[in-house]
């Protein structure tokens, strides 16, 4: 059962300018793992913008900004490169309250715009607790 849907678009150049203008911003928005590829190389602005868009899309799927910080929503990547979402703290609590048990994520960036679409999936019991805050494949 679909519990929520969220979409967001981000201007890559604008986010890039913000990251340059405010050096502390990257650490505020992204976990250390999000800022790098699994290989250890730093992610370029387009990739970070797609991750920021994902966080905002997840917030929308949860029903809006509800005291959830950007790092409470972590965009992960499995070995195949497929993105997913891991929630922490209040984001996990909100997801549990909505009965969300899995997140499905699609990211894209082209022509200077990063986009994210997320679908929150759950079972028929809206109060099922999330055990470890990990959702997705």
């Amino acid at each position: 059962m679909i519990r929520g849907v969220g979409a967001d678009v981000v201007d890559v150049a604008r986010l890039s300018r913000s990251l340059v203008r405010t050096p502390a911003l990257a650490a505020r928005l992204f976990t250390p793992a999000e800022r790098r590829f699994p290989s250890g190389a730093e992610r370029p602005p387009a990739s970070l913008a797609a991750r920021f868009a994902t966080k905002e899309a997840v917030l929308k799927a949860l029903g809006g900004p509800l005291g959830v910080g950007w790092r409470d929503i972590e965009v992960t990547q499995c070995a195949s490169g497929r993105p997913s979402v891991r929630t922490h703290g209040p984001a996990t609590a909100h997801a549990a309250r909505l009965g969300i048990t899995a997140w499905h994520v699609s990211l894209s960036h082209d022509a200077g715009i990063a986009t994210a679409l997320v679908v929150a999936e759950g079972d028929d019991t809206p109060t099922r607790p999330a055990t470890d805050g990990t959702h997705g494949p």
Binding site: D8, S18, T22, R28, F52, A53, W70
Partner: peptide, 15 residues
């Protein structure tokens, strides 16, 4: 107001 501007607003207030 979009998500990026909202984030910029938060960072502006903090700074």
């Amino acid at each position: 107001i979009n998500s990026l501007f909202a984030m910029e607003l938060v960072m502006f207030i903090e700074k």
